[in-house]
Amino acid sequence: MARPSTPKSWEVLIGEQSETSAEVPATVRLLVIAPDGDEFILGRNDLGVYVAVPEPGAVFVRALQDGCSLADATARAGATAGAEVNGGEFLDGLRAAGLLDRQRAGGTSQTAESADGDGRSIRWFEGISPRTARVFFGRPAWALYVGAAVAAAMVLATRPALRPSYSHVWWLPDPLLSLVTYVLLGFVLAALHEVWHWLAGRSAGVPAAFRISRRGAYLVFETDLSQIVTVNRTARYGPFLAGMAFDVTVLAGALAARAAYGSGVVEIPPSLDRLLAAVVLALVIGIVWQWSALFLRSDGYAVLANALRCHNLFRATVLTTKWRIWGLSGEEAAEFGAIGPRDRAVARWFGLVYLLGMIGTLWAILIFALPFLLSTGAWVSANLAAYSLSSVAFWESLAVLVYLVAGVVGPAVIAWRERRLRRAGALL
């Protein structure tokens, strides 16, 4: 029951525990507790907010959930810690982290709720049962994915003619139609990559939220599986690697078809062979990106941070780098101070990877992406003037131009939006 007289956002327990009613919010019952090595994860599945605490913190919350008073819960936590602890201060810390906020509107079940913190994500259909989803991520499935990765690597190593080249974008005689279809194809492949993350999350009992985000200056589809921090670290690798599992499987299929066609084993239309070459190009770019853009928080980053048992490595890395180059603001210093020693130790060397990677990315944008953007933009802009409104080429050119502009404006808008969400504690 809320107290309308004060503008606070949490609710209070009433009734038999009246002596603690002002101190212990009822929302403490919404906290989930999960072990993580020597530590424990406390979180709110409905808000998508999670923190790591030592064992006394978990004992304290469990005691409150069992109906203990603040004093009793503090005593239990102190017994676990072997030292005196301040339960009120810890509770204030949980409140400051947003973990005691009111249940989100529409958030009824704490198990089926989506793990998104920004409220604008698309809730996806939950029509596939976890049991069905597990078919795609059992041992036989992973054997298939690993086999596909090995097969694709062997074909690329031994058949130079099948290696991707940027010229493979132009798979049709009409360059404009080639570009439009290549972009559409890339969208389909990217969406299916994300669906595989969602499916793997489903098999682990973790819901997903989808959004459009950015990595550096590039737009991305993003699947948020935040609730995965409540399952053990080993079980997190599957969902992290699921997108690339899809990529390598399609890649192996496309390469096998091209190899068979090239050897004269099968007959397919030459245009289909060229389309498969475009598929190979898009997939190889995607896979190389996932392992080379670790510093931009790619899927490979999630694997690395999990292997290093980190909690908040990305912010630790950004803040370490900022501190080295031009120092931190008071707010940033406080945020950095609240990050654990393990994350900060890893960030000391990962910060160098981050800095070199950012310099490399900037260089690549200036050398490759910007010239491509300007030349393609000039080409389609000239088309707009040259073709009539009734021609297909006019509308294809307009579509490409809109896409190019969105690729420049989008990341800037998203950077602003995500900074706002991060400062509100809604998305980390």
């Binding site: 994860i41 030292a83 699947t223 599986l225 995607g286 490595l313 654990g340």
Partner: peptide
């Protein structure tokens, strides 16, 4: 002793736009 609270980052997995 103070019970430290460490924020945990989201698991955010991506695929680039073409």
């Amino acid at each position: 002793m103070k019970i430290e609270i460490r924020r945990v980052e989201s698991a955010r997995l991506t695929a680039n736009f073409p």
